[in-house]
Design a protein around this nucleic acid. Sequence first.
DNA 1: CATGAATGAGACTTCATTCAT
DNA 2: TATGAATGAAGTCTCATTCAT
Lengths: 228, 228, 228, 228
Amino acid sequence: MPSAYASSSAAAAPLRQRRKETRPQELLEAALRLFVEKGFAATRAEEVARAAGVSKGTLYLYYPSKEELFKAVVRQNLTSLIAEGLEVLAQFEGSSSDLLATLMNTWWDRVGNTPAAGIHKIVLSEVRNFPELAAFYTAEVIEPANRLFTSAVQRGVDSGEFRPMPLNAVAHTLMAPMIFLALHRHSFGACQPACGSADIDPLVLIHTHLDLALRGLQVRPSGARPAT
Amino acid sequence: MPSAYASSSAAAAPLRQRRKETRPQELLEAALRLFVEKGFAATRAEEVARAAGVSKGTLYLYYPSKEELFKAVVRQNLTSLIAEGLEVLAQFEGSSSDLLATLMNTWWDRVGNTPAAGIHKIVLSEVRNFPELAAFYTAEVIEPANRLFTSAVQRGVDSGEFRPMPLNAVAHTLMAPMIFLALHRHSFGACQPACGSADIDPLVLIHTHLDLALRGLQVRPSGARPAT
Amino acid sequence: MPSAYASSSAAAAPLRQRRKETRPQELLEAALRLFVEKGFAATRAEEVARAAGVSKGTLYLYYPSKEELFKAVVRQNLTSLIAEGLEVLAQFEGSSSDLLATLMNTWWDRVGNTPAAGIHKIVLSEVRNFPELAAFYTAEVIEPANRLFTSAVQRGVDSGEFRPMPLNAVAHTLMAPMIFLALHRHSFGACQPACGSADIDPLVLIHTHLDLALRGLQVRPSGARPAT
Amino acid sequence: MPSAYASSSAAAAPLRQRRKETRPQELLEAALRLFVEKGFAATRAEEVARAAGVSKGTLYLYYPSKEELFKAVVRQNLTSLIAEGLEVLAQFEGSSSDLLATLMNTWWDRVGNTPAAGIHKIVLSEVRNFPELAAFYTAEVIEPANRLFTSAVQRGVDSGEFRPMPLNAVAHTLMAPMIFLALHRHSFGACQPACGSADIDPLVLIHTHLDLALRGLQVRPSGARPAT
DNA sequence: CATGAATGAGACTTCATTCAT
DNA sequence: TATGAATGAAGTCTCATTCAT
């Protein structure tokens, strides 16, 4: 019965189709996790494929080489990283202290505390072997993040809320403790519990860091309290 | 022609020099440089040997495996690091603000600004593949450094100079910006000039960071100025 | 020219044949031959692979190490050996002298005169470097073979056909000349013709050995003649 | 004081001299033991040197290569092997049965039960990688031993004591059980106790073997008993 | 599209041999 | 003569990549 065959294959097609479209995503997720866990070189192509539920050959159907897969992982995770931050800044109304507090807490919730934070660790570890990624990552992640925090600080200075200080250095100082914590959680933190600084409570860290930094920034630190 | 012979033999470096005493040091130096540059996995054993001016086999005369070489690099560059800081703390006389400023500047001069700073980057990148290294590094580097800064802050709190705050979080916040800068200089910073946050002047960063942090810490931040 | 294409494609053997089913057997055969010829250590893994018509990597697809390949060779060539003899013993009807004669002739046909006899030579040569192989080979080959001959002699003693004698020593004495001949053929015998005791006709040896041994064993040696 | 120096160096010289002359012997002994234990390929040149109490370089002062050392080991141990047997045969007076019994017991005491028996195992294991040894060993050891036993049997046949039988096959049968036992003791026997046929008592074996073989050989086996 | 058997360049490591001391 | 540091060819094994099915 031709019609029966036709309808059955027609029914199956969408599933295949959907599969085909989600494959890259599944591969990138598996690759991200494994690259973060074991590093680029120590992760075998077949491991990634298996973790994504496909065979070795299929991986190469979507990415021509392990290196290209690596770059794709970085690129794909960058778009989300960037989108996160810019959203927040755009429509914020309130004091600049509250803005910084919101940025940090949001970053931690949406990036630092998710597997995506591992992306920074991989890039940090591997850029020297993938020079082309450097400019890319700098332009797409580091610079925007810098601008984000720089702008937030500038906003506070303009309004008279913050003391005037070297913006780049301040932005760096504001971001470093959180990113550094995320880095450590993806390296030392993965071993024994309480190994390294993994025993630091991220929320306490953010609160304390804001407490310190805002008091340091504010012209009149008296009443300022970070909003957690 | 005697003179010809003399000059030629003077020019020809001996192919097989016997230098058991200095070899380990030379190998460790070459290994440090290459591991920091390319990562552990991407550095071939023979490269290290050649960089140290010896053959592949000679490397294995001194270190039984590439992994042990790596551990030796870490160990050698750490022993001195730890001692430095503890000394400073022990004999310091002056305000705790000045103590923190001194610690940071010293760290930058002796570690952050030397190739040894690259060690932290390698360890961060590779530690998940070397579980035993994790415990070692945590015990020998991370914990002592934490204790060092924790003690310094505690000293300030005890003397009434600093506000009481969560010590671990404060210590982390104090160290992160500097170490993070060092990490970046060994990854993004090695590519194009002014790529990443490599364009931040370390001295400005330290000064600004201290300015912020001390003002945040101090009970009476009015007159406090970091000593650079 | 279609015919030209056809003939040329028929002549060109496919470079990458997929034959998962038959590969292990081919590899084991090649390994047996080479190990017997050159010894375990002197045979390179790649040689075995090439001899089986595959590449180095393919060998490791089927056997995780050269040592495991060696063990597989031993196992494969042994399982059948043991079964053979036990069967013969089980269903034999006739005098014990005839049983011994049959066992020896069978062993020579199925083992001594086949490449499998070389196995004993390899194991003998290499066993001190493979302690676990020693236990395996002893349990799977030496002990069963001893039991086989011991039982056959015991059978003759029980029926009054043979004199009572130390069974282990008799079994050893019965097997030694044949195995020893096989050993020599795989060592000295492989060099020049008529080198060593390779010039001994195995059939004459077996006949003579049986003639001697049975006459020695039998209570009434008068009429006994080995059946060749 | 020149005289003091002179006399002291004169006193030391003989020691050195003696040392120099015993070195080869010490090296050969160490090499024999290690080659028997681990095989030729698995024995490192440095091991041999250390076992002989000298450094790696010194070994090469006496033997130009590991292969030559191996050949020297074989050669040196052959001369003694051969001498042993020929002596015995020459001046024997008594029955041929007693002669065979004497030959076997002597061989076991002087060869089979000494480390020198290991020589046969090494040669057996390695001849195929050292073809030049084959002819040498055959001519110097195997053939003489064959002649020795062949002659003894011939002697018995000539005197009417033994039945006429194929001499080569009889000689092989007579020697095999003892040599085979020695081989096993140097391979399987070195592992766990009671591993392989190592649990056979050599004296029981020889006695039983002679009991069997002589009874098989003798025209009138009635009164014959091997003299142990 | 998907598979996984097959490939082979390349990495780590060993060790026979050399040679400066 | 004796040493042992140094060498580098060679071997085992891995794994990114290809391709017949």
